[in-house]
Computed example of a mutant assay.
Amino acid sequence: MSLTLLDIESIANLSYLAIDKNQIYDILKKINDIFSLIKSIKNIDTTNIEPLYYPISLIQEKILFLRKDITIKNNNYFKNYQNLAPIIHDSLYIVPKIF
């Protein structure tokens, strides 16, 4: 399937898009390139390839190396952050008004 200039103009008219006459050839080429890519993908032989039902798990196993979640026990972060704050009231950080 490929489109013609008349097809592009018709689609633009139906979509209420104003396309510059200088750009219409570039748009036509890009759309036809997309159609040819789709056509070439359809021609790929996939008879011996098992379908992926959950491709995310495959990506995580082969590409993403995530660290394990580790719970840190007995941390003192709360006190450390409270000590860094300039003003604290009832364990809340007090910030100056902007407005």
Rank of each mutant, 00 (worst) to 15 (best):
D20R: 05
I19F: 02
T71V: 08
I94G: 03
S15Q: 11
K68F: 02
S40P: 01
F35E: 12
P86C: 00
I88T: 14
Y81C: 06
L14Q: 13
Y53M: 01
M1S: 11
I59S: 01
A12G: 15
E61F: 07
K21R: 15
I59T: 06
T4D: 12
K73G: 00
P86D: 00
K29A: 15
I59C: 03
I94K: 11
I27Q: 04
K30R: 13
V95H: 01
N22F: 08
I98W: 06
I11K: 15
Q23L: 13
T4E: 07
A12M: 11
D45G: 04
R67N: 07
P86F: 02
I98F: 06
Y16H: 13
I72A: 05
N48K: 08
L5H: 14
K21T: 14
L64P: 12
D45I: 07
E9I: 10
N48L: 09
S57Y: 02
E61A: 15
T71E: 12
L37G: 07
I11P: 02
L3T: 00
I88R: 03
S2W: 01
K68N: 09
L6M: 13
N74C: 03
T4Q: 04
N75I: 00
L6Q: 15
Q82F: 03
K62C: 03
D90M: 09
N74G: 09
S57A: 01
E50N: 08
D69A: 03
K21V: 11
K62E: 03
T47V: 06
F99I: 09
L52M: 11
I49T: 15
V95R: 07
N83C: 01
I44S: 06
L58H: 11
Y16T: 15
D90T: 06
I59Y: 04
Y53I: 00
E61M: 09
S91T: 03
L84P: 01
I88C: 04
L6T: 15
L28R: 10
E9L: 14
S2I: 08
I27N: 06
S57H: 06
L66G: 04
I56G: 02
I72D: 04
